[in-house]
């Protein structure tokens, strides 16, 4: 403050607007708020991300199944990612029923061929998770209600699936999901 020159510089630095309305301090304010904003977002990221599946949950992501003892007309329930999987050895009658359906009339059009592996079109592997809200449909075990189309029936909200586990009636939007799987031998499936 010894001279007018330094006093001017001082007052400008303290916030006096220059001709175009921009103050030198604006830069500091924008930089500080931006840094705090970016820092805040960076701090939120781990808080959000911690809720996603942890490494041990993701590690349980493949299941091997031996289906050598699975006779025609039988099903087994396996577990994949802590959810049920239905493996069914379809009877010729069930295959015929599935193939007789007009594909265009389906809510989620798919043929049985598309839903099974080549060379094993009589083995239907689907997640036992209703595509409506995730209940386990009935029909995989002996004596359970198979619904109006001879496949699976979800008791929670009344979705009916046909012999190819395709949605035919009720609120579910999609066919029972076919998980990623492959035949490692003729009688062994690896899901996931």
């Amino acid at each position: 403050m010894a001279s007018t020159g330094t006093a001017d510089a001082h007052s400008e630095a303290n916030g006096a607007a220059s001709v175009d309305g921009v103050r030198r301090r604006d830069f500091i304010e924008i930089a500080a708020v931006s840094a705090a904003g970016v820092g805040g977002l960076a701090a939120i990221y781990p808080l959000v991300s911690q809720m996603a599946p942890s490494a041990d949950v993701l590690a349980e992501s493949s299941t091997e199944l031996d289906i050598s003892s699975l006779e025609e007309g039988q099903s087994i329930k396996a577990v994949f990612r802590k959810q049920p999987v239905f493996v069914r050895h379809l009877t010729p009658d069930e295959i015929k029923q599935a193939n007789d359906v007009d594909i265009d009339s389906l809510r989620d059009p798919q043929t049985l061929q598309e839903r099974t592996e080549d060379g094993h079109h009589n083995i239907l592997v689907v997640m036992g998770v209703c595509t409506h809200l995730g209940c386990v449909p009935l029909g995989a075990a002996e004596g359970e209600n198979k619904g109006e189309f001879g496949g699976y029936f979800c008791p929670c909200h009344g979705s009916h699936y046909d012999t190819a586990a395709r949605i035919r009636k009720g609120p579910a939007p999609k066919n029972l999901q076919v998980p990623t799987y492959e035949f490692t031998t003729d009688t062994t499936i690896v899901i996931g």
Binding site: M51, A52, P53, V57, K82, V129, L133
Partner: peptide, 24 residues
């Protein structure tokens, strides 16, 4: 499962909410 009804992001949201593929 209600959240899985949301188009596109529904399923990832459900998995995120549960921290897994099913309640655990």
């Amino acid at each position: 499962g209600l959240f899985s009804a949301i188009p596109l992001v529904g399923e990832p949201i459900q998995i995120w909410l549960l921290g897994g593929f099913a309640p655990d």
